[in-house]
Design a binder for these strands. Structure first.
Lengths: 152, 152
DNA sequence: GGCCTTTATGTGCATATGCACCTTATAGCA
DNA sequence: TGCTATAAGGTGCATATGCACATAAAGGCC
């Protein structure tokens, strides 16, 4: 009896795995443009959601739809660079964040680079395909709401 | 003169940010099913790409389309649990990985939970929408090839 | 005002991610 | 047979991610 050639396993299509794969590649694509500014895509997103009006951590996290604790740490490099400043308001529990002048300038430069990346991405994907993809993503986001804590 | 109410910034739609957001939520969705097995979605993906036939690290990384160094560390918990074993082949540089018997059993249990998650996800998104989304993701992956090292 | 609950945030832990750089084998070739 | 280029992997560093747990301040009530 001969030895079976073991085929490499090809798992069933997993939407989650595909999403992670595509996200890895897409992130790399954007970051190849942001690299000269030494900025990650996530950091860019945070910068773009900040303004001169102070926002509490949780409020900002909600708007970014990211975990509060992830944001806490994600803000650190931006604070270190002096692009964001932290204040305390009347409620001593809250930390309020806002862009500094330098942060505002940085945001503009970053947005310019981002726009190039976005255009280039749409060119690679094809405009109409990119539009359709964006719509699907948006729709998926609205259909897949995060599970509420369900206080039992 | 009165004080302007500073509106919170609403950045231009960024495909990358959207993808990251959706990936975060989707991963959380799958992992709520895999949690009882103490398995992350990434680890599940790795398990599903392993078999009884030994594969070199780089080969496995290519098939998973993930970074080689990420995989090195991603394999660690699986090795620790005894689901995967590492061997050395004729070429002393290579590390070959394959499932153990326990790993095979784990893979089956994990796949059952994953299947529930996948079905539930498709139910939440709607079958036809989920199918369409999957196709878009696949298509996007094939259009957005990673930049080759460009040996200058 | 003191007590209890809720709210806002931080920290520890364990991965996930990928770039830059380092080490070790193997392969090619003079 | 050496010498050199290349291939396979690992490590250090800096973030990204999110759960479980801890702390402190605010709010409500009696």
């Amino acid at each position: 009896m001969h030895i079976k050639a073991e085929p490499l396993p090809t798992p069933l299509p997993c939407t989650g795995a595909r999403l992670r794969r595509l996200t890895r590649r897409t992130t790399a694509f954007y970051e190849s443009y942001l690299r000269e500014l030494d900025l990650r895509l996530t950091q860019y997103s945070i910068l773009m959601h900040l303004g001169s009006a102070p926002q509490a951590l949780t409020e900002l996290a909600d708007r970014l739809e990211m975990d509060r604790t992830t944001l806490t740490r994600g803000l650190r490099p931006l604070l270190r660079q002096g692009w964001v400043e932290e204040r305390r308001g009347a409620d001593a529990r809250m930390r309020l964040y806002q862009l500094t002048d330098g942060g505002l300038a940085m945001r503009e430069r970053a947005q310019a680079r981002w726009a190039e990346a976005q255009l280039a991405l749409e060119a690679v994907l094809g405009r109409s395909f990119a539009d359709a993809l964006n719509q699907r993503l948006e729709e998926a986001l609205s259909r897949l709401k995060p599970a509420l804590p369900e206080d039992n």
